[in-house]
Design a protein around this nucleic acid. Structure first.
Length: 859
RNA sequence: GGACGAUUGGCUCAGCGGUAGAGCACCACAUUGACAUUGUGGGGGUCACUGGUUCGAUCCCAGUAUCGUCCA
C-alpha cells in the first residue's frame, strides 16, 4: 500500500483508537516474552498493586515509567519482560471482606477460618483485581501470560521454601517482645506499618511516693502507670543520684517500686524522671530487661484496661487516661499539666487506629546478617540507586534495621508453616512435607511484605529452576516510588540476596517521586485534591496522561500535576496528528533510500541534523532514567523544529510540486520521531506510524540509531540565521500593525546561501517579491529585508523598537568591554571564551552602528 | 535529635562556573488550505540572605533563614 491510499481521520480522538490497539497488541502476543530467545533479557517486575486497589495517579506514573523502559528495550532488541501481578495485601483485603460481613451482622469468627478464607477468595474472583483492567487503559505492555499473585500456588511454595531456609539457618525465631499492636485489627504490625503523626495529647507530672521518698515523673500516658515496675533517672543526674536504689510508692495500686538509673533517660526531658512500664513501652522494655524490672500487663488486646484490680478495669485506654488523671488530681498528686501537648504518636497504616505497644509472643526475622548483605550490595556498586542522593536513606535504614516482626494475627495470608507437637516440639513444614500426627499449626499468617520480598524470583517460578528464572533473573531495573524503599525494595534485597546465592534481584533501583496536586500539595481525601487517572484518560487520552507524567518526572523528585498540563499534552498529540496529516497530504514517504546528503537543501539537511542530535540526546536521557528531560527534548524537536520551522519553511517547496527529496526526508523524520516517542505515547504513535509506513506495528519496530553523517553544523547555522531574520521581520510587522495575512512588497538582500531560500521566506513573511521603493528595512548581520509599507511607517513604533534594541545592544557591549578590559580575565580565562567575548563585542558594535544609523534615518 | 532535599518570572519546575530557560498563566494581533486542542509577536526574574573561593558565581564552599520529606 502506498502512503497516499492511507488516510487519517481529520481529528484525533484517543478513545477511538486505544481499545482496538491494545487488543491488537495482546492478540498478536507482542508483550509475551520468550524464555528461549537468544536475545539479551531485560526484565522488570511490577511493584504489585494490592488486589483491593484501584489505579491511582501514583500507579499511573510508576507504570508509565516502567512501560517506557520496557518498550524502549523491546525496540532496542532485548527480550523484554514486564511481569504483572498483584499482592494479596493481608490486612487490607481482610478488612474489606470483614466489612462486607459486618454489613450482614457477621464477624469472621461466625464463619470460621476455613470458610472465611474461602469467602476472601470468592471476593477476589468477583471484585478483586480491578486495577488489572485499568492498567490496560494506560497501555501497559505487560506480559499477561505471566500474571502472578502472591497467594498463587507457586508463590506460596516460594514462601514456605524461604521460611524453612531462614529458620534452619537460625534467622527466624520466636520471642516475646514489645511489638506494635493494632487494637482494632487485632494484629501485630511491623515498624513500617506504623505511621507517626503529630497528635494532641497531654503531658502530666505525677508525684510518686510521699515526703522524702517521693519523685515526680513526667508522662503522656498516665493510664499505664498501674503497670509501672520502676522509676528511672539518668545515672549522673544530681537531683536524683541519692535516690537511686531506693523505693517509692506507686499511687493507685499502692505498690513499692525501685528507682533505677539508666543512660537512656534524658535528664532534660520533663522532670528527668520517667516511669518504667515494661509491658507497654518499647524503651521501657529495654530498660526493664537491663534492670530486671517485672513486666506488669494491664491492658488486653482491645486496648481495654484489664487486671489492675482497680476501678479502671474495663475502661478503654483513652477513657482510662482521663479517669486516672482526674483521680490523681483528687489525690493531689498532679504537679503540673501541659495540654494540649503535641507529640508523635503511631497509627496503624491500614486503619489509622492508635497503635498500642504490646508485650506479645511473635515470630521475627533476624535481619542483621541479611541487612548487612543488602547494604553491601549497594555499597560495592553491584546495585545502583537512582538518583544517588537517595542512597543514604537506604543505608540509614538497612544499617539500623530492627528485627522484623513477621507474624500477623490474621487469617488471610500465608499461614506460618510452623507446627507444635504435644510436648512443645517446634517443627517447620516445608513444601511437600507434612506435619506428624497430633501436631497443630501456628494460627498466624505472615506479613504481606514477606511474600512481596520474594517477588523478583517467585514470580519467575522459583524455587523451581524454570526457564524463566534462568533467563530473566536477576531482573534489570526496579522502578518504584521512594516511599516504598523500606517497605519493599530493601526487603527484596534482603531476601533476594539470601535466596539467590548472593545475586541481587536487580542491578538498578530507579526511584521516582510522588504525584502531588497543582500547587505541590500532597493528594489526600481530606484535602479533596485527589485526581482519578481514568477520568483523565477518558478526557484526554492515555498518551496525554502518560506524556504529562513522564515529562514531570525528574529523578527522585515529587511532581505537581494540573489538569491544564494534561490538556497541554493532549494538544501535543493533536499537533503530531495534524502534522502527519499535512505530511501525508504532501506526499511524505518512507519508501526508498534517503536522498544523498550532498543534494539536500539546507532546510532538509538541517532537520536531519537536528533529528540526529535529538535521537542521540533523547535516547541517552531515557537510558539514564531522565524522563522529564527526555520528554522536553523530544517535545521541542517535534513542535518547534519540525512543526513550527521545518514544515513552515517547506510549504513553498511542497506547493511547487517538485519536492521528492523533502517528501522522503519528511517521511524519514516522522518515521524516526514516532519510533522515539512510542515508549511514552504508544497509541498515537502506533496509529500515525502504521498509517504513514503501511507496516504492521511499532511495538516491535527497531529503535532508531542516530546517523552522525547527518550532523551538519553549516546548515544549522544557516537555518539559525534564517530563523533570526524571519523572527525579526515578523516582529517588525507586528510593531507596525501589519495584519498577519496582509501581503506587502518586500525584498531579501543577503548572501546567496540565504537568498536561495527567498521564496520560502517570502511565503512565511507574506512578502511579494516585486519591484518597489522600500520605505523600511530590517537588518540582522549581513542580512537585510526591505519592505514597502506604502509610506505608512509608524515612526513612533519603529523608534521605540529600535531604541529598545539599542539599549539591549549597549548593555551587551558594556559587559563585553568590561570583561575584555579586565587583566585577570585576559590572562586567565580560556582562549575560547576570550574569542567568544571578542566576537560578541564585534557583533554588538556592528548592531549599535546599524541601529544608530536607522534611528538617524527615521528623523 | 539524625539524614536528605528545596528556596530561580504569577504558578509548577528545569538548568548551571562565562549575556537567565520551559510549560501553563498574562497582553496584543490574526479565523492565511495541517492544526483555534492553533499561529505570530510581546511583557515579566537583583536565581532566599550573608560571607568566602575565582579573572568571573544563579551555579562551588561556609554560615543564616524559611519550607519539605524520611527516620528516631
Amino acid at each position: 500500500m502506498s502512503s497516499n491510499q492511507r488516510e487519517l481521520a481529520s481529528s484525533f480522538v484517543p478513545g477511538d483508537i486505544e481499545g482496538p490497539l491494545y487488543k491488537k497488541w495482546i492478540d498478536s502476543g507482542y508483550f509475551t516474552a520468550d524464555a528461549n530467545s537468544s536475545k539479551e533479557p531485560f526484565t522488570i517486575v511490577i511493584p504489585p498493586p494490592n488486589v483491593t486497589g484501584n489505579l491511582h495517579i501514583g500507579h499511573a506514573l510508576d507504570q508509565t515509567l516502567q512501560d517506557c523502559l520496557t518498550r524502549l528495550k523491546r525496540m532496542q532488541g532485548f527480550e523484554a519482560l514486564w511481569l504483572p501481578g498483584m499482592d494479596h495485601a493481608g490486612i487490607a483485603t481482610q478488612n474489606v471482606v470483614e466489612k462486607q460481613l459486618a454489613a450482614k451482622g457477621l464477624s469472621r469468627h461466625d464463619l470460621g477460618r476455613e470458610d472465611f478464607v474461602k469467602k476472601v477468595w470468592e471476593w477476589k474472583a468477583e471484585s478483586g483485581g480491578q486495577i488489572l483492567g485499568q492498567m490496560k487503559r494506560l497501555g501497559d505492555s505487560v506480559d499477561w501470560s505471566r500474571e502472578a499473585f502472591t497467594m498463587d500456588e507457586n508463590l506460596s511454595k516460594a514462601v514456605l521454601t524461604i521460611f524453612k531456609k531462614l529458620f534452619d539457618q537460625g534467622l527466624i525465631y520466636r520471642a516475646e517482645r514489645i511489638i506494635n499492636w493494632c487494637p482494632r485489627c487485632l494484629t501485630a504490625l511491623s515498624d513500617i506499618e506504623v505511621e507517626h503523626q503529630d497528635d494532641e495529647g497531654e503531658f502530666v507530672q505525677v508525684r510518686y511516693g510521699d515526703g522524702e521518698a517521693s519523685i515526680v515523673v513526667a508522662t503522656t500516658r498516665a493510664e499505664t502507670m498501674m503497670g509501672d515496675g520502676a522509676v528511672a533517672v539518668h545515672p549522673d543526674d544530681p537531683r536524683y543520684k541519692h535516690m537511686i536504689g531506693t523505693e517509692v510508692l506507686l499511687p493507685l495500686v499502692n505498690r513499692m517500686i525501685p528507682i533505677i538509673a539508666d543512660e537512656l533517660v534524658d535528664p532534660d526531658f520533663g522532670t528527668g524522671a520517667v516511669k518504667v512500664t515494661a509491658a507497654h513501652d518499647p524503651n521501657d522494655f529495654e530498660m526493664a530487661m537491663r534492670h530486671n524490672v517485672p513486666f506488669v500487663v494491664i491492658m488486653n488486646e482491645h486496648g481495654v484496661m484489664d487486671g489492675t484490680g482497680t476501678e479502671f478495669d474495663g475502661m478503654d485506654r483513652f477513657e482510662a487516661r482521663v479517669a486516672v488523671v482526674a483521680k490523681l488530681k483528687e489525690m493531689g498528686r498532679i504537679v503540673a499539666e501541659k495540654r494540649p501537648y503535641i507529640h508523635a504518636v503511631g497509627h496503624c497504616s491500614r486503619c489509622d487506629t492508635t497503635v498500642e505497644p504490646r508485650l506479645s509472643k511473635q515470630w521475627f526475622v533476624k535481619v542483621a546478617p541479611l541487612a548487612k548483605a543488602a547494604g553491601d550490595a549497594v555499597r560495592d556498586g553491584r546495585v545502583k540507586i537512582e538518583p544517588a542522593e537517595l542512597a543514604p536513606r537506604y543505608f540509614e535504614w538497612v544499617d539500623n534495621m530492627h528485627d522484623w516482626c513477621i507474624s500477623r494475627q490474621l487469617w488471610w495470608g500465608h499461614r506460618i508453616p510452623v507446627w507444635y507437637g504435644p510436648n512443645d516440639e517446634v517443627i517447620v513444614v516445608g513444601p511437600g512435607e507434612s506435619a506428624p500426627a497430633g501436631y497443630t499449626q501456628d494460627p498466624d499468617v505472615l506479613d504481606t511484605w514477606f511474600s512481596s520480598a520474594l517477588w523478583p524470583f517467585s514470580t519467575l517460578g522459583w524455587p523451581n529452576q524454570t526457564a524463566d528464572v534462568k533467563k530473566f533473573y536477576p531482573t534489570s531495573v526496579l522502578v518504584t516510588g521512594y516511599d516504598i524503599l523500606f517497605f519493599w525494595v530493601a526487603r527484596m534485597m534482603l531476601f533476594g540476596l539470601f535466596a539467590m546465592d548472593g545475586v541481587p534481584p536487580f542491578h538498578t533501583i530507579v526511584l521516582h517521586g510522588l504525584v502531588r496536586d497543582q500547587f505541590g500539595k500532597k493528594m489526600s481525601k481530606s484535602r479533596g485534591n485527589v485526581v482519578d487517572p481514568l477520568e483523565f484518560i477518558d478526557k484526554y487520552g492515555a498518551d496525554a496522561l502518560r506524556f504529562t507524567l513522564a515529562r514531570g518526572s525528574n529523578p527522585g523528585k515529587d511532581q505537581a500535576l494540573a489538569e491544564d498540563w494534561i490538556a497541554g499534552s493532549r494538544n501535543f498529540a493533536t499537533k503530531l496528528w495534524n502534522a502527519t496529516r499535512f505530511a501525508m497530504m504532501n506526499g511524505a514517504t518512507t519508501e526508498g533510500p534517503l536522498p544523498a546528503q550532498s543534494s539536500l537543501s539546507a532546510i532538509d539537511a538541517w532537520i536531519l541534523s537536528r533529528l540526529s542530535e535529538t535521537t542521540t540526546e533523547y535516547t541517552a536521557l531515557l537510558e539514564s532514567y531522565e524522563f522529564a528531560r527526555a520528554c522536553e527534548t523530544i517535545y521541542h524537536f517535534a513542535w518547534d523544529d519540525l512543526c513550527d520551522w521545518y514544515l513552515e519553511l517547506s510549504k513553498e517547496t511542497f506547493a511547487s510540486g517538485n519536492a521528492a527529496d523533502s517528501q522522503r526526508v519528511l517521511g524519514h523524520v516522522l518515521d524516526t520521531l514516532f519510533r522515539l516517542l512510542h515508549p511514552v505515547m504508544p497509541f498515537i504513535t502506533e496509529t500515525l506510524w502504521t498509517t504513514l509506513t503501511g507496516k504492521e506495528t511499532l511495538v516491535t519496530a527497531v529503535w532508531p540509531e542516530a546517523d552522525t553523517a547527518h550532523i551538519d553544523k553549516k546548515s544549522e547555522t544557516l537555518i539559525g540565521e534564517l530563523q533570526k531574520i524571519i523572527t525579526e521581520v515578523r516582529r517588525f510587522r507586528n510593531d507596525q500593525g501589519v495584519k498577519p495575512s496582509q501581503k506587502i512588497p518586500g525584498r531579501i538582500i543577503a548572501p546567496a546561501e540565504v537568498t536561495a531560500y527567498s521564496s520560502a521566506m517570502a511565503f512565511l513573511l507574506k512578502l511579494e517579491l516585486t519591484d518597489f521603493t522600500p520605505s523600511a528595512s530590517v537588518e540582522i548581520g549581513a542580512m537585510k529585508v526591505e519592505l514597502d509599507l506604502s509610506g505608512t511607517v509608524d515612526v513612533v513604533a519603529e523608534r521605540a523598537r529600535l531604541e529598545k534594541d539599542l539599549a539591549t545592544a549597549q548593555k551587551d557591549l558594556k559587559t563585553a568591554e568590561v570583561k575584555l578590559g579586565n587583566e585577570g580575565f585576559m590572562a586567565k580565562a580560556p582562549a575560547s571564551v576570550v574569542v567568544e567575548i571578542k566576537e560578541r563585542l564585534a557583533a554588538t558594535t556592528a548592531d549599535i552602528e546599524r541601529i544608530t544609523a536607522q534611528l538617524a534615518a527615521l528623523k
